[in-house]
Write a protein that binds this DNA or RNA. Structure first.
Lengths: 350, 350
DNA sequence: AGCGTTGCAGCAAGCGCTTTCTATCCAATG
DNA sequence: CATTGGATAGAAAGCGCTTGCTGCAACGCT
């Protein structure tokens, strides 16, 4: 029924071993023989049996990519970049690898399950993107799992996520969320803002915490008062941004700026500001984070911090494939770039 | 080194066969034995070897999802929905399946390669999303490949893509792009527009063609003149929308509306209109297609056609898993819903 | 001419799991 | 009490491929 290596071998009048070697190209085979084999493969329309070959060779060509939300361009862009580098069709890499994009929904539990699934498949590499959940038990469990994967020969790369415990020997490409948050708030302070609302992401997430820390560091550094009421937590989506902004404005109608945890949230914030009858940036300035493609099209265009998502993803992909050396110490910090646009301006009564 | 089934068997003092049966749960095993096995699995921290089991059972738990652009929320949303239904952690399905999201970049060639890769992995199912390339040779090749996959037991589902040749026995969930395009243009005609620019997607794509056909059908039905100069093709991204709009406005400064192939393109179009010193919708109305999440946050909010992306994806996922019956005839047409918002209005000199 | 090399191809032993067929035990039945 | 049958568990034969090792020419060297 299905064509096997043996069929090809028979047709090309060689042994299965030879066919295998032609296909894997890592053993000398005479040109004439190779050609005969290739022809047979073609004529028989033979397709290698992945599982069988993975079993025999004890390695597979699957690469896992864990993302929090595949529908979010933040992750989509990174995933796309990673995939383009790990090979597969169109990639520059030689071997054809299959990227398995896993949607964890930000749940540590699912992350763990996916990691097990990937371990089961004997994945060649795993790239974890986005912030991690800050919960000792989970963090521990994930670290343990990563260690096991690494032991089994799976390469681990973290992209846009803080370094894992050292003994995990995972390479980490970390975003400087703290620094970015600080830049944003300093920009606002520089414009004269003193009463700023902050819409943070979900609690217990490294990204959320770091960005918020950056914000507070900026406030502290410039002696700008902070107020617990000025911070609200919510999910990383526009809806949360919209509601949080309304809440913030209710708590303190004198706010002159709203700092959103990311661009998507900022978009919702903008809508809420407008729906409250206020103008951006005349009445309220709004800033985001990430500089997703749509941010420049917001009206007014969003002031934000650009993260080189595609570059980071591509680099992570190359490292995962062993085509680029890991950064010294296994850790690289990637800085964002402040993009000042129309959504920020001096407060009215400065 | 790595724990195998045999190790577990030894530890539980049963045969490997029994362990396998416990793990697969499709054969009577005495409760006491089962428990002993489970304990051993736990103690040894055993993880099944996917490839080995796939080889022996001649089936795998991989499901392929082909998308044109993973960074585009249009596909991200569908992919997420599909994945949530095909199982994997968090899904409601029983078996744990791994979703393989493949980024074809809209290239038929890569699509083919990915299909082969999936065939090699003996994927349990494959879901193809988005429009297809309209090129006889490629369409033929894809159909042939799909047929082979189907023969090998892989379930094929098309989501948001026109039906494949009947003998492929693929289930198709098709978006009514034609109807949506027509509604949009009729809405504009109803407002009094007579000179409308159209920014089409890349040529040779079913989605592009269908939406354009809808537009033209509306024009024809209402006796509104068409003009070849009023149609420009471009990629499905904001940049293309921006440039196409500039071009359109250059060709005919009298245009009172711009119809974009999708929301992303529409965003670029809006930017171009504004940068040209024109107001939306007072001077120029703009419409998109898809109703992606950010469209409501455009300023003014975008008039568009909402496609139930998540629902369609979820349904495709369930069908792929055999948890929902295929629609009669294997084809279902999914209609979009016109969302009239602020980006459209009556033309000034109507 | 004799012998060590070198270059290619084949043999065969698995890789770790599933599954058919068979064996065993024990309760129920005639 | 012998017989039958249901319920479990085990033995073993692969699934299709990779790869270490062996075999065998043809080659170059002294």
């Amino acid at each position: 029924m299905t064509v096997t290596l043996a069929d090809v071998a028979a047709r090309a009048q060689v042994s299965p071993a030879t066919v295998s070697r032609v296909l894997n190209g890592n053993y000398p085979v005479a040109a004439s023989t190779r050609e005969r084999v290739l022809r047979a493969v073609d004529e028989l329309d033979y397709v290698l049996n992945g599982p069988a070959s993975a079993l025999a060779a004890a390695t597979s060509d699957l690469v896992g990519i864990l993302v929090n939300d595949i529908a979010d361009p933040f992750f989509g862009i990174m995933a796309g970049a990673i995939q383009s580098e790990i090979g597969g069709p169109g990639g520059r890499a030689g071997g054809e690898r299959l990227a398995v994009v896993c949607n964890t929904g930000g749940s540590a539990e699912r992350e763990l399950t996916y990691l097990t699934l990937l371990q089961r498949q004997r994945a060649a590499a795993v790239v974890l993107t986005g912030g991690a959940v800050e919960n000792t038990a989970h963090a521990e469990a994930v670290a343990t799992k990563l260690r096991k994967l690494a032991d089994a020969g799976t390469k681990i790369v973290l992209c846009g996520r803080p370094p894992a415990p050292a003994d995990t020997d995972a390479v980490a490409l970390t975003f400087d969320n703290r620094g970015g948050g600080q830049q944003l708030t300093e920009h606002l302070i520089g414009l004269g803002h003193r009463r700023m609302g902050y819409i943070a992401g979900p609690e217990e997430r490294t990204t959320t915490r770091h960005r918020l820390e950056g914000h507070r560091a900026a406030l502290a550094a410039h002696g700008v008062p902070d107020n617990p009421d000025w911070t609200v937590h919510g999910r990383y989506d526009r809806r949360a941004g919209y509601e949080a902004t309304l809440e913030l404005l209710r708590r303190d109608p004198e706010l002159t700026a709203v700092v959103a945890a990311n661009d998507t949230v900022a978009l919702g914030a903008c809508a809420a500001v407008r729906d409250s009858g206020l103008r951006i940036p005349d009445d309220v300035s709004v800033v985001g984070f990430d500089d997703l493609p749509f941010s420049i099209d917001a009206v007014p265009a969003l002031t934000t911090v650009r993260l080189p998502l595609a570059d980071a993803g591509a680099r992570a992909g190359r490292i995962a494939m062993g085509r680029e050396e890991a950064p010294p110490g296994g850790i690289a910090t990637i800085r964002g770039e402040l993009m000042v646009r129309g959504s920020t301006g001096a407060p009215k009564n400065s």
